[in-house]
Structures are given as structure tokens and as C-alpha cells.
Design a protein around this nucleic acid. Structure first.
Lengths: 200, 200
DNA sequence: AGCTGACAGATTAAGCTAATCTGTCAACCA
DNA sequence: TGGTTGACAGATTAGCTTAATCTGTCAGCT
């Protein structure tokens, strides 16, 4: 069942992890535009060239950083979903609420949102947000398909992408409280979910 | 049925219209950050103070400009919806497709999207996008309630807001073609609409 | 009601040089 | 092989100063 990860992959993974963690620490202290690649490399105890070797460019690294931080939230979402496998509608609500609440309170997210401008990280979630949407959609799709195997894959993906886009929209421009937003969105998506799961 | 608009309102409306039109012309030629309030006033044949009197500040004017330009798209959406009053699902698809296609081709929208940064107009659709979402939601809600009077107002509004947020998301970060996006979104929302209209 | 002129405070343009950063080498070590 | 070092051109930014411009708000004039 468990194939031990061969050393090269493990080392590579550790390298990436260390670099991204170093970057996260920096980002919490000052805007992304002021953080240099050299500083990140040094903070990770690695040479600048190793950083470039692993992540082709500054932008690619920023992309990876945003996604890496996103993992934390998606993990929380996964957990929330798995706690409501018996009630898809509650699962959607819990997932969105969990995401909106944890993301809304996260200092790093707050920085990311306030750090407007081309130089910041925000464009990677909005204007150039496709890779993030793509990634989050795939992860969420997997979660859904795992929780409800009877769901048709295309519908699972459609639901996942919509949830991702709505989640991003509500984090960047919140209207109601996380709970209210989650409840309303759950209400909207429930009929689709019922139909997708064959519970007409 | 038609109460003639009293002069004061008409004059005020004309003033706003003229100023916003002047601003639109400028925005098509160079970034918003380089356009001054004085230039807009002059281009409209009006003094700077009149501009400030009508729109409190530069940001408020920018807000109004974005919404004013949005009117064009919402008008197109209204038309698209009214052509499918017999088929709500087709109406949603047509509305979204119309919006995404016209907005995607619009030079002003392209400029707005490429003009990243705090100084540009983009934040008014993303980070500080609530007023725009609010406004578009209200307009679309009205359209829906007018087309399908039997729809419960809260559900109409929920549908409208979701459509608005998804539309903005898909303009700023397009995944598929407008047609495909519209079709998929229509598929997702159809069950909710059926239920809201009592056609279980 | 709208224009003019004037205002303080803040921001930006312009000019320049020195410093720094990115991205990519080749050469060097474990 | 996977990592480090050092060096590199080209582009970007930091710093600094001064002059210019812009915003937002007056009061007074038409």
C-alpha cells in the first residue's frame, strides 16, 4: 500500500517545502514586491540558483507560493466536507463557511488582499488567477468524487469550479458574514446537487 | 404614465452623462492613473469644481464610471433575458454568454483588465468590488422579477448575485469560451431555477 | 447653479547616479 | 548528479533634490 518515496523526490519535495516556508515568513513581514529571490534563498539556507533551478522564475515561484498557502485552506475544506458525507447540502455550506472564515481571519490572506498592485500577489488570484482556479478545482473535484462516487465526474467538476470561483469572489469582496454566505450558496446549489446525486 | 422629468434632475443627469462620457474617451487612450480630474472637466466643457460637486472624489467618480460603463452590458443582458422569457434556463445561458462575449470584446474592458495596480480601475471590480456587485445584483434582480413575477424575491436576488459574481470571475479569469461557460453555468443553475419557479 | 482664483498638503515628474535584482552563464566541489 | 560559487548583461529600482502638478476645499463673483 505504501511505496516509500525514493530519495530524489523526497529531497526535491523538502527543498520546495523549505523555500516556500521561508517565503511565507517573509511575506508576513513586508510586501511581496520588496522581497528578493536572494533573501528567500538565504532564509532557506540555499543558493539563489537552486531556487531558480526549482522554480523557473519569480512569477512562477509566486504562483507556487499562493497555491502552497492555499493548500492549508483546502485541507480544512476537505475535513469539513468529510464530516458531512451524509448530507451534501450541509457539506457545501460547511465547506464554504470553513473556507471563508479561516481565510478571512488568516493574516497572510489579509496581507495578500490589501497588497494591491501589479507587484503584489493578488493578481495571481484575480487577473492571472486561472492556474489557482484550475488547481483548486481539481483538488475539490477529487474530494467530491471521493465522497460521493455516484456523482457524474463532469458535474462534480462543474460544482467544484463554481464553488472555487464563488469562494474567491466572496473572499475578495465579502457581502455577508461567512455563515450567511455559505447558507445562501448552499441553498442555491442544493437542487443541482440533489439532481446530480440522483435524489430527485 | 410619463411624468416629464423636471428640469433640475434632467440637467443633473445631463451633466453626469457628459462627464462620464468624457472620462470614457480618455480612458480608452491612456491609463486611468494618468488622467486628471481637470482634464475630464475640461473635456466635458465644465469646471473642475462642478465635477467635484457632482461626484465627491476621484474614487467615487471612478466607481461611477465603472458602473456607468457596466450599464451597457447590463442593457445587453436585459435584452437577452427578455428574449427567453419562456425558457429560464436558456435565459441564463443567453445572459451570461451575451455578457461574456460583449465584455470580452470591449476595448474598454480589455484596458481595465490589463491596467493592474492600485492606481487603475480594476480594484473597483475586484478588491473594492462590492458597490459594483451590489449595483449589478439589484439591476439583474429587477430584470428577473419582471420576467418571472412568480419567483420569490429572495431567490431571485440570490440567483442574480451569484450570476454577477460568476460573470465577473469569468471575465477576469476566463477558462472556456463564453458559450461553453454559459452552457455549463446554465446547467448548474437550472435545477435551482426550476425549483424557484415551482416547476419541480 | 456654475465659474474663477486661490490655497495647503500630498503626490508625482524629472533628472541623475549608484545600487540592486533578475535570469542565465560556466566552473567548481560533494 | 545536485548543489554552490562567482560573474555577467540588461533591466529595474533606490535615493535624492527640485519643480511641477493634482487633489480637495475654500470664498467670492456672475
Amino acid at each position: 500500500m505504501e511505496a516509500r518515496t525514493p530519495y530524489p523526490q523526497a529531497a526535491r519535495q523538502l527543498l520546495r517545502e523549505t523555500l516556500l516556508a521561508a517565503a511565507r515568513d517573509e511575506v508576513q513581514q513586508r510586501p511581496w514586491s520588496e522581497i528578493t529571490m536572494a533573501e528567500i534563498a538565504t532564509a532557506a539556507g540555499v543558493s539563489r540558483q537552486t531556487l531558480y533551478k526549482e522554480f523557473g522564475s519569480r512569477d512562477e515561484f509566486a504562483q507556487a507560493l499562493v497555491i502552497h498557502e492555499g493548500e492549508r485552506f483546502l485541507d480544512a475544506v476537505d475535513t469539513a466536507v468529510r464530516e458531512h458525507l451524509d448530507d451534501p447540502r450541509a457539506a457545501i455550506g460547511a465547506a464554504l463557511e470553513t473556507f471563508l472564515r479561516t481565510a478571512g481571519e488568516d493574516p497572510l490572506v489579509r496581507i495578500l488582499l490589501s497588497d494591491d498592485g501589479t507587484a503584489g500577489l493578488l493578481p495571481f488570484v484575480t487577473t492571472q488567477g486561472m492556474p489557482v482556479v484550475e488547481w483548486a478545482t481539481s483538488r475539490l473535484t477529487a474530494t467530491i468524487e471521493q465522497g460521493w462516487p455516484q456523482a457524474p465526474p463532469p458535474k462534480a467538476r462543474l460544482l467544484a469550479e463554481t464553488l472555487v470561483r464563488l469562494a474567491i469572489s466572496h473572499v475578495t469582496a465579502p457581502a455577508d458574514s461567512p455563515e450567511a454566505t455559505a447558507a445562501r450558496t448552499g441553498e442555491l446549489l442544493a437542487p443541482f446537487v440533489d439532481e446530480a446525486l440522483g435524489r430527485k
